[in-house]
Design a binder for these strands. Sequence first.
RNA 1: GCGCCCGUAGCUCAGUGGAUAGAGCGUUGGCUUGCGGAGCCAAAAGUCGUAGGUUCAAAUCCUACCGGGCGUACCA
Length: 567
Amino acid sequence: MLRDQIQEIISAAVDAAKSAGELPDVPIAPPAIERPKQAEHGDFSTNIALVTTAAVKQATGEKANPRQIAQAIVGHIPVDGLVGAVELAGPGFINIRLSQQFLQTQVRAIIDAGDTLGSIDRGAGQRWQVEFVSANPTGPLHYGGARNAVLGDALASVLTAAGYEVEREFYVNDAGNQFDLFVQSLYARYLQLHGQEATIPEGGYNGAYMLDYARQIQAEVGDRYLTIPRFEALQEMRAKGRAIVLADLQDELGLIGVKFDRWFSEKSLYDEGLVEQVLSDLTETGDIGEWDGARWFLASKYPKNEKDEVVVRTNGMPTYFASDIAYHYDKFVRRGFDRVVNVWAVDHQGHVPRMGAIMAALGLEPERLVIVLYNLVKLIRDGQEVKMSKRSGDFLTLREVAEEVGADAVRFLLLTRSPESGVDFDMDLAVAQKNDNPVYYVQYGHARICSILEKAAGEGMPTAAQPQPGDADALALLVHPAELDLVRKILELEEQIDFAVEKLSPHNLTHYALDLARTFSSFYEQCRVVDGDQPALTRARLLLSLAARTALARVLGLMGMAAPESM
RNA sequence: GCGCCCGUAGCUCAGUGGAUAGAGCGUUGGCUUGCGGAGCCAAAAGUCGUAGGUUCAAAUCCUACCGGGCGUACCA
């Protein structure tokens, strides 16, 4: 990364100053390189002199002057190539400005990077899994699930851009209570379709969509399930119901552009005996014991856990937690992911400590499992919170929101917030403001550039993507502040990607995308691109416009949004 | 009660110990005859919940308190 190069330059300058005897030879941490808030403070700044002052004071007991120290370091920073200017400012900050020539030459590099623009090698050689959504397969996703989908998907994209090999996984809870209730509810609906008396079980699923599902089954099997015993009918319906609900979920997630590499079945863990195997392994290691007629995982042996957890109930039925242990064994031991990121709503926070206990019991480094918690989405109507219930069928689905507000607008809306911030979602307001969504500003910038490039092509100019002999000379004409600022802004993308990975949250991308679009607009207002009287400058600005389009398309792609050529 | 998270402009939210705390929406005023006005420029708008502490430097770290959300199942 560019920032790393700057850091190396500063480090080298510190060493050189020490060798020259201009700095006392005390240990100094690697300099922190920051992006100043204000443009006058340059492209990068470092507080190394202030930090060094403290280090010198501690080592020698003598008071040092931070500005003097800064001056000594500045004297050893070469001004050539990358660095255009170095300034000493304020109490002892060192501000660095990128050279004009460097910025100009980056334009072609940006274009050539294309859809790998901003990629970094932070995760090279690392295989990560992002498991997200993983909603119960009992019906359409509600709106809160959309936040999970948007967050997990963008996170996976950003990790990929940072060099990790990433798999997106949806854990299908097709074993256990909720799925049983779903199948029984489905069976009841099926019977009702055939005019038979049937009631939805206590705690079952009443939503209207269940009738649609039942009709699909009816269309497939006719009245076959009336002719075979209930037990067998339910058995078959498990598979059919599963296929139908997964198809529905897949379709719904597809509306906001989310695709999974793998849909992992909880039931498969039982079918192949992995749950039983892992439970018996842990019994041997003393992590699972039996009392009060149940089998328990001794979580309290491990830090941050106060209680033990039931894995097999008194009635002999395993809990969700039992398969969760086997599932994570599968992820780490069998499939060998270096790291797994689970995206959970904050109401599952109580599980976090016991997941740490699982890792410890399985002999795995706890940091290999990361849980990203995001806050809940509250639905507001007429200023009041609306409680949603999947069982009663009274809930706002992701599909409804995506259709009414627009997929990209929904993604943007949910992605701008940091995960820990709660979201109050007012559907009426969202619909009313849907054309004011900031995502359209970003997309508009992209479409506008496409239009400019098309106009240039229409006037017989060579395409910007195709290198021309005089390009290097033409790019040297980019000296307007708005032109250089645009290049600067594009070059920030890699740091934004790095930051998103560092924080395991891609929400900064939305702010960056807006910033980038604004920077392009500013260039567009101040610098006419296509000008027949100035062919070389036109060429340079076409290249810069293409670079901006590349960056806009890239960041929109990372966020899972379209980059339209017209709108 | 205990644990985790949040409190920043009218609203919704960003903000990596650093220099004058930002954006979108809303409000007010201006920009027609040049590549897309879904745009641009400008203005008003802040006790960063409160009080202490650490630091050369705190919205950011620590402590207490106030307000809100979530959790504290042989549910998932």
